[in-house]
Amino acid sequence: MSDVFWLSRDLGLPPGDQYTQDWAYELPEQYRTRAWLEKYLAAYLMGGYSPQARHELMTLALDVCNDLVSAGASSAEEPMVRVLSALFEDRQANGDLIAYWAMEGEVLEECFALTPEVRRLKACKRTTGA
């Protein structure tokens, strides 16, 4: 069974179908709220999922954070702070996601709403070695 199947079953999410390519990005709006974000983060932190499933959960959490920030929330609000903290706590496994959301070399006007905070945290972690 696929990681998406298990995540869908465990969290009560639609599993997608044979045409679904990017499950985390294609979930309907009703699953892209603060309440759902809390569930994704809890599942990520709980453990028990494969590295690929945890990657999918972090991808989903970051995308929902970006939606919330785009809609006017601050990246300094909960649960966005906890998602970004979890992202950087496991930099080894999340390096590709950090690079994706940081969009290094791109002007901020052409980046995600979450990009400035990801860049700030990345620079902070680099200078402190944390």
Rank of each mutant, 00 (worst) to 15 (best):
Cys65Ile: 10
Val64Ser: 07
Val107Asp: 13
Gln18His: 07
Asp90Phe: 03
Asn94Ile: 09
Ala102Gly: 07
Tyr100Met: 09
Ser74Pro: 01
Thr115Asn: 01
Gly129Asp: 04
Gly95Leu: 11
Gly48Asp: 10
Arg32Phe: 05
Gly12Leu: 12
Tyr31Trp: 09
Phe88Ser: 12
Ala102Trp: 01
Glu78Pro: 04
Leu87Asp: 06
Ser50Met: 00
Glu78Val: 09
Glu110Cys: 08
Glu56Phe: 02
Tyr44Met: 03
Glu38Ala: 09
Leu62Val: 06
Val107Gln: 14
Thr127Glu: 13
Met46Arg: 15
Gly105Ile: 14
Leu62Phe: 03
Ile98Phe: 05
Leu41Pro: 03
Ser70Met: 12
Thr20Cys: 02
Glu117Met: 06
Glu117His: 05
Glu56Cys: 04
Phe5Gln: 14
Thr20His: 01
Phe112Cys: 00
Cys65Phe: 05
Gln52Asn: 11
Gly48Phe: 11
Ala86Gln: 02
Val81Tyr: 02
Val107His: 13
Gly12Pro: 02
Leu11Gln: 05
Pro79Lys: 15
Arg126Gln: 15
Ile98Pro: 01
Gln21Arg: 10
Tyr100Pro: 01
Arg9Leu: 13
Val81Asn: 06
Gly16His: 06
Tyr44His: 12
Glu77Ala: 10
Ala113Glu: 02
Val83Lys: 01
Glu104Ile: 08
Ala42Cys: 09
Val64Asp: 07
Trp23Asn: 02
Met58Ala: 11
Ala53Trp: 04
Glu77Asp: 13
Tyr31Pro: 00
Glu117Pro: 00
Met46Leu: 12
Thr115Phe: 02
Glu38Met: 05
Glu56Lys: 15
Glu117Cys: 07
Leu13His: 13
Arg120Asp: 10
Leu37Lys: 08
Leu68Gln: 14
Ser70Gln: 13
Asn94Trp: 06
Ser50Ala: 14
Lys122Gly: 07
Leu121Tyr: 04
Gly12His: 07
Cys124Gln: 12
Ser85Trp: 04
Pro51His: 01
Ser74Gln: 07
Gly72Cys: 12
Thr127Lys: 13
Cys65Leu: 05
Ala86Gly: 02
Leu68Phe: 01
Trp36Glu: 05
Cys111Glu: 10
Asp10Asn: 10
Gln30Trp: 08
Tyr49Pro: 01
Val81Trp: 00
Glu77Pro: 00
Leu45Gln: 14
Pro79Phe: 06
Ile98Trp: 02
Ser85Phe: 08
Ala86Ile: 00
Ala99His: 05
Ala73Ser: 13
